[in-house]
Computed example of a mutant assay.
Amino acid sequence: MTDEKLDLLLRQALNLEIADHDIQIDAAKIKSDRNTTSWKYWKHFPAAAASVAVLTLSSMMVCAAWHYLSAKDVAGKAADPHLAQEFEQNNWIDGCETQTYGDYDVTLLGVVSGNEISSHLSKDDSGNIDGDKTYVAVAISHSDCSPMPDPLNIGSDSVQFYVSPYIKGLDPAKYNISVLGVNNTVFLSDGIQYQLLGMDTIAAFAGQGIYLGVSEGSNYNPNAYLYDSASGTLTRNESFNGVNALFTLPVDPTMGDSEKATNLIDAMDHYESGGESTIILSEADLWLNSITPETISENAVPLESSRKTVSTDEFFQYTGNDVSNDSDTGSLILKEYFPDGTGMSEWMTRSGTSMEDAFVETYTLNKDGTITILKYVPNLNK
Score class of each variant (00 low, 15 high):
1 M>T: 12
10 L>T: 05
12 Q>D: 14
15 N>A: 15
23 I>P: 02
26 D>M: 11
28 A>Q: 15
30 I>V: 14
44 H>L: 15
48 A>I: 11
53 A>L: 06
57 L>N: 13
65 A>R: 14
68 Y>N: 10
69 L>A: 10
72 K>N: 10
75 A>Q: 04
78 A>D: 09
81 P>C: 03
86 E>V: 12
92 W>K: 06
102 G>C: 09
103 D>E: 11
104 Y>N: 00
120 H>M: 06
124 D>G: 06
130 D>Q: 08
144 D>T: 00
152 L>C: 06
156 S>E: 14
156 S>K: 14
168 K>F: 01
170 L>H: 06
188 L>E: 08
191 G>S: 01
192 I>V: 12
200 D>K: 13
202 I>D: 02
203 A>W: 02
215 S>R: 04
216 E>D: 01
220 Y>P: 08
223 N>H: 06
226 L>G: 13
232 G>N: 07
234 L>V: 11
241 N>T: 08
251 V>R: 03
251 V>G: 03
255 M>G: 10
256 G>V: 00
261 A>D: 07
262 T>V: 10
264 L>K: 03
269 D>L: 15
270 H>A: 07
282 S>V: 04
283 E>I: 11
283 E>M: 09
285 D>S: 01
289 N>V: 01
310 V>Q: 05
317 Q>R: 13
320 G>C: 10
322 D>Y: 07
326 D>H: 11
328 D>L: 13
330 G>Y: 01
331 S>Y: 12
332 L>K: 11
336 E>R: 11
337 Y>Q: 04
339 P>H: 00
340 D>R: 03
342 T>P: 07
348 M>R: 07
350 R>K: 06
357 D>H: 06
357 D>A: 06
379 N>T: 11
382 K>R: 10
